[in-house]
Structure formats: structure tokens, C-alpha cells
Design a protein around this nucleic acid. Structure first.
Ligand code: FES
Ligand code: FES
Lengths: 131, 131
DNA sequence: CCTAAATAGTACTAAATAAGTACAGTATTA
DNA sequence: TAATACTGTACTTATTTAGTACTATTTAGG
């Protein structure tokens, strides 16, 4: 199947939940709001934080909040945060791993075009659109 | 990672190889041309055949050929042939499985928009473009 | 009609990836 | 200083993908 990770799906749900947060919202509360298990939310937040999509605040009254306005965070951002660089095949430019057929392959580099088209499509939809 | 199956990647290589085939080309020859292992080619052809992307001919001098002109076969077609319907999440309309959060989910149905955008992008690139 | 070439279908095994869980550590505020 | 909540890492299990094997069926040609 051609699909995003379940965690990416969850991440969008989390991001949408955070849209309505005025102050920092703890993982526990996010879990309650969304129905996503607490440990899973916890794991997600680490990825979203590292990618700079959310801000965190420790201690009592701590929690997470969006790092940018909802209409500036795209689905592409969320996918990249959770799953790493978007590379439909391993012979796409920004892929982490290397294609083993590269030496004698007939479609060498052609996937770049497809990849760009998909990324462009994913950048068009924002968290605000998902609300 | 957000990516297509390796088999899908191989499938495009196979399709591109078939562009240059005047008569039916056997799996074995496709394997030789592309460097993809023979058993794997064999497996692929079954999927491509079922999806109607190639035509087959049995017996001596048999083999496979494209069912339509190269510029009419899209990357979306190939992905669907190998991986089934394109459904980025399980709550997308044409998905085979059902989303378990559907009852209380905040982004319910919103992925349809993303999915459509991606499919549209994948339909824009054809086998001819990959040659 | 018989044989060799080649596809068609099914089922199994092994490898890779994703999902879920656990836990010890650190910062913050009341 | 105690309670709250994030941070980081590592582990286990489940699921999916990739690869392999084998049998049956069809076709062309001698
Ligand atoms: S499949 Fe990777 S270079 Fe062709
Ligand atoms: S994640 Fe499937 S309905 Fe929301």
C-alpha cells in the first residue's frame, strides 16, 4: 500500500488539537482530547519538537504549543517531521539511502520529477485546512 | 519513511523496458535487460497484467507487451497495480481498511483532500516521461 | 501429438519496518 | 522540595514487504 505511517496520521490529529490551545498543553491532555494513547502522543511530540513544529515548556503548567500559525504548517512538514525526508524512491535526490540499481538503471533520476510533484501537492495543504 | 514499494520502483523500470518492445518480450529477457532478478520480474508481471497495464502471450515466442501507449500509462497506474488503491490514510474514501479512530476523530475525512492532490500529481507523470 | 517455452496462480519464508512500551533522567514552578 | 511534565534512549512485538518455490496451464512448432 502507498500510504503515510499511522503515526503521521496521529500527528496531524495532534497538530489540529493544538490549534485550539492558548497556553502550553501537556501530552496527557492531548491524549485525552484526541483518544490517542498517552505513550504514543509522547513519542510523537519528540519528533514534532525536533522538527521545530511545536514549542515545549517543562515543569508544572508545561506542555506543547504550535511553533507557527496553523496556516503555515503543511502536511509535508508533518510527514517530514515524523518520517524523515520525503523520497518516494531511494534514487531521489534527498533520499537517505542509496539505490542499488543506480549503475545500470533505465529510469535513473526520473523519480525526482514525480517526487517534486508530490511534495508540491503536500505543501499545499496546511494544518488550518485540516481543522 | 514516506515512499513507494521497491516493487513499484522495479515496475516502472520494467514498463520503461517494454516501451522498446515491438513483439512480446518474455520475463527472462526483461530480467536480463533491467538487472532485476527473474523471479521478481515474474511476480511483478502478474500484478501489471491483472491491472491491465500489459498484455500477455503464452507459449513459445510469448511474453509481455504494453497494453497502451507509453504516454497514456501513468505512475499512478503503476502504483495502483502493484500496491492497490492509493489511500494515504485508512480514512480516505477508497481505502481498503477502516480507520479505528473514525468515531471521535478531529480530522475526519480531511485526508481526502491531500489524497486527491497526490493522486493528481502522480497522474501527471507517464511512462513516456520516464524514458 | 509431443515437447519445449513461457505465462498463471498460489503459498510459503525471511527480512525489514513500524508500532507500541518502558524507564531513568532533567527542568520548572508552586 | 515535591509534584508535574518534558527528554532521551532502548527494547519488544506486530505488521508489512521482499524474495522464493513450486505446480498448473497454454501455445508454437516440429
Ligand atoms: S531505480 Fe534507482 S537509479 Fe533506477
Ligand atoms: S484518523 Fe481516521 S477518521 Fe481521523
Amino acid at each position: 500500500m502507498f500510504k503515510v505511517n499511522k503515526l503521521t496520521d496521529y500527528a496531524t490529529v495532534v497538530m489540529v488539537d493544538l490549534v485550539s490551545a492558548d497556553l502550553a498543553r501537556p501530552s496527557q491532555k492531548i491524549a485525552n482530547n484526541t483518544g490517542i494513547p498517552y505513550p504514543t502522543v509522547n513519542k510523537l511530540m519528540k519528533d514534532l519538537l525536533q522538527a521545530g513544529l511545536v514549542r515545549s515548556h517543562r515543569g508544572i503548567n508545561g506542555g506543547y504549543s504550535l511553533a507557527s500559525p496553523a496556516h503555515k504548517i503543511t502536511i509535508a512538514d508533518i510527514i517530514q517531521a515524523v518520517e524523515g525526508p520525503i523520497a518516494l524512491t531511494s534514487c531521489v535526490n534527498n533520499s537517505l539511502d542509496k539505490c542499488s540499481y543506480e549503475n545500470f538503471c533505465a529510469v535513473q533520476g526520473r523519480w525526482n520529477r514525480v517526487n517534486k510533484a508530490v511534495v508540491k501537492a503536500l505543501k499545499k495543504v496546511t494544518v488550518a485546512d485540516m481543522t
